[in-house]
């Protein structure tokens, strides 16, 4: 069921997820569109999450936004101006050192483009001390090579060491790539298009911001509501590979699916392998934390001998 609406208040806002774009010039959603978006969400009882850009918003925008309960995802440099927002750390260093006030723990998103992959573990370590929760999202997965995937495995191992040390000290920030799989016992994915939609500056609705930036068909508009056909294909029930998978924490990113396999419900090999490297790293970390509470109470993650669940389905071969 649709419960959330993301609002791209500024089209140049840095990516907070797997999608990417190269828009640098401020592209504000017209105020009237913002007002209609808020009304649209209100009428349908959708929770609002705003995504502003690096530029400070005009006061009339803030007035509209602050009029209703909402969450926000903002560049970490704007931490002071959005006290409760989730902070996006741009791994290129623009906002790396920024964060909340001293001693304050905030939710962080670390978005890692491919060329910064080798810095991942260090960046995770830097965020850990000030995060109540850290989400790491890889960019450019569509261009990942076998060497990148190997590097990611190495970085996960290093990062797991830092996370283990923090957990042993009694601090328990959640880190999506490790703790989500430990805590979950069923699929918990992005669910773009099912649970949330994105309102873009053009007044149209999209499955997620990535679909807007890539010029894909809108999923509807503020006037007509959701017009997206075949929405069932965004659900887990209609995703044959994911339905047989236990990488419960995986984003199951329909944006990447669409880009790499041309189908919303079919993940690429890259996505599955990366998610399984995380799954396996979480498994080893949980083993390692063995007797440390609360980890001692968590169910062990079983070992599996594959990295791509596709290899487990009988029809995978070119010919049965």
């Amino acid at each position: 069921m649709l419960t959330h609406l993301l609002v791209l208040v500024d089209g140049s806002a840095p990516s907070f997820c797997h999608y990417g774009h190269d828009r640098r010039i401020t592209e504000l959603m017209p105020l009237a569109v913002l007002e209609r978006t808020v009304a649209f969400a209100h009428d349908r009882r959708l929770a609002l999450t705003y995504v502003p850009g690096r530029e400070e918003l005009p006061p009339e925008y803030r007035a509209v936004m602050d009029n209703t309960a909402h969450a926000a995802i903002v560049p970490a440099g704007l931490a002071g101006r959005y006290p409760d927002a989730i902070l996006v750390v741009d791994a290129d260093g623009n906002d790396g050192s920024a964060g909340g006030a001293a001693g304050e723990r905030r939710q962080f998103i670390l978005r890692l483009p491919r060329h910064r992959l080798a810095a991942m573990a260090d960046l995770v370590r830097d965020c850990l001390g000030r995060a109540s929760r850290l989400n790491v999202y890889l960019g450019d997965i569509e261009r990942y090579t076998a060497a990148d995937i190997e590097e990611y495995g190495r970085q996960l191992e290093l990062a797991a060491g830092y996370v283990a040390a923090v957990y042993r000290q009694g601090s328990l920030p959640e880190v999506n790539i490790f703790s989500d799989r430990m805590l979950l016992s069923a699929m918990n994915n992005c669910d773009a298009g099912v649970v949330h939609l994105t309102a873009a500056p053009d007044g149209k609705l999209y499955i997620c911001p990535g679909f807007y930036y890539d010029g894909e068909q809108p999923a509807g508009s503020l006037e007509d509501g959701i017009t997206l056909a075949n929405r069932q294909l965004l659900t887990l029930a209609n995703a044959p590979i994911c339905s047989c998978c236990d990488a419960f924490h995986c984003k199951r990113c329909v944006y990447l699916n669409n880009k790499l396999t041309l189908e919303w419900n079919t993940p690429s090999r890259e996505q599955c392998v990366l998610a399984h490297l995380e799954r396996n790293a979480a498994r080893l970390l949980l083993d390692r934390l063995g007797s440390v509470p609360p980890f001692s109470r968590l169910r062990a993650i079983p070992a599996v001998d594959y990295l791509d669940p596709f290899d487990q389905i009988p029809t995978r071969r070119l010919q049965p």
Binding site: L260, T261, T266, E270, F310, R317, L318
Partner: peptide, 17 residues
């Protein structure tokens, strides 16, 4: 050669999906 990602949706097709 064959692009394995583009082939995946075909090989994963099930009746019910």
């Amino acid at each position: 050669g064959v692009n394995a990602n583009l082939l995946r949706p075909f090989l994963a097709l099930t009746r019910l999906a």
